[in-house]
Write a protein that binds this DNA or RNA. Structure first.
Lengths: 107, 107
DNA sequence: ATTGAGTGCAACCATAGAGTTGCATATAAC
DNA sequence: GTTATATGCAACTCTATGGTTGCACTCAAT
């Protein structure tokens, strides 16, 4: 299963408060689902689902440590997304300035 | 009314295929909800909702042209988001390398 | 004034998903 | 082996939301 998923899925993963809380925690230090459950106001199972979603889009990465599965935040994936956005944004700006130049024209 | 909305809302706005179709169209050239309804497979009302959401987070901007409301894609807002992501990503990387250095330590 | 294109509002349906509880399974530690 | 901790799976609830249809409103043009 490829780690690259559609950009929309990444945004969907980033479009949830609980997931940002998880990411914030993991940004500080890697942690397991159970450990996160101690620090966050939702159940371990809910966190597990979030971790699954985040892992699917490559924003976090699991690693086995003893009998637990510790997750860490993957900054590189986030940079990826950022770069894609910059590219799209650039495209819009270029086309817009062109359009504003012609004042406006139909199809 | 501040144009800045919570990052999560922006991601939520970007987490929908139809909205990306809308953005793609508007990236090409500004258009009204009705015009978009001609080119997209969903109803004008659905598009209107999407435009509302996109406008709320500043990704598109409405401008009155005669009796229609034409929307244009705002690249600057997207760049904003991209920069925020880069910053967060950088933070993760820094902390991670530090952690990997110490091999690991509890709270 | 009438027409028609464009917009706005509201009710409604269906699905996705965030969260929960409960139970089963695996495994490190004793 | 037993125990305690960690994960995994499944069913269920509840709410958010993408999409629809239908109707009312606005306003430029004739």
């Amino acid at each position: 299963m490829p780690e690259v998923s559609s950009p929309v899925d990444v945004f969907a993963a980033l479009a949830d408060d609980s997931r940002w809380q998880v990411l914030a925690e993991l940004g500080r230090r890697p942690a397991s689902a159970s450990a996160l459950a101690d620090r966050l106001p939702i159940t371990r199972q809910a966190i597990a689902k979030h971790l699954r979603i985040l892992a699917d889009v490559g924003l976090v990465e699991p690693m086995k440590v003893g009998r637990e599965i510790r997750y860490e935040a993957v900054g590189a994936r986030l940079s990826d997304v950022a770069r894609q956005l910059e590219k799209i944004a650039g495209g819009w700006e270029r086309r817009l300035s062109r359009i504003k130049d012609l004042a406006e024209g139909d199809d």
